[in-house]
Amino acid sequence: MSTAATATLDRYESPSVATGRMGMWWVLASEIVIFGGAVVCYLLYRWHHPEWAESAVHTNELIGVINTVVLLTSSLTIVLAHDAAHHGDAARAKRLMGFTILLGLAFLCFKAYEYSHEVAAGFTPVKNLFWSFYYFLTGLHALHIVAGLIAIATVMRGVGRRENMQRVEYVGIYWHFVDVVWIFLFPLLYLAPKF
């Protein structure tokens, strides 16, 4: 009797993509249409409501820029973690994933600070439809950040025991996706009104 791991080696028609990576791509495919749908709704409304620009100037683009930098840096650290895991350096991979988590938490803190000031200034989700979309899109994104952080932390535990090192790449793919979503949201929500 052979173990499942060795059995899969020559048991199946040769797979083109590693199974875990493929699973992650399917997850992203599902996510892209969710965010895609939400962003298209926003764009359609925005098209019909040029007056939203007046609301959009009240977003805090300084924090937006800082958060963009934070997320981009966290993408770099997770790539480096993948690289370290690829070369079998579990300690370094773990450390870099730790950095990524810290940066993700920093992003959430900045976001929370931003939300609280906006709400205090009266820009609540029911202020008008622009703000509804603002909270909806950034909130959905923040939830994905939280999910990503949990996933990275879970994988990090395994890496500490030198198990499933290939999963560093998979959470990395996911983390890049969350980053890319932000790259879309930032100009659409923060910058578009100013030009």
């Binding site: 495919a29 892209i32 249409v33 969710i34 965010f35 895609g36 749908g37 298209v40 709704c41 959905l140």
Partner: peptide
């Protein structure tokens, strides 16, 4: 997979 996303957002 490719049709349900926008409805989840909706």
């Amino acid at each position: 997979m490719f049709s349900v996303g926008p409805l989840i957002a909706g």
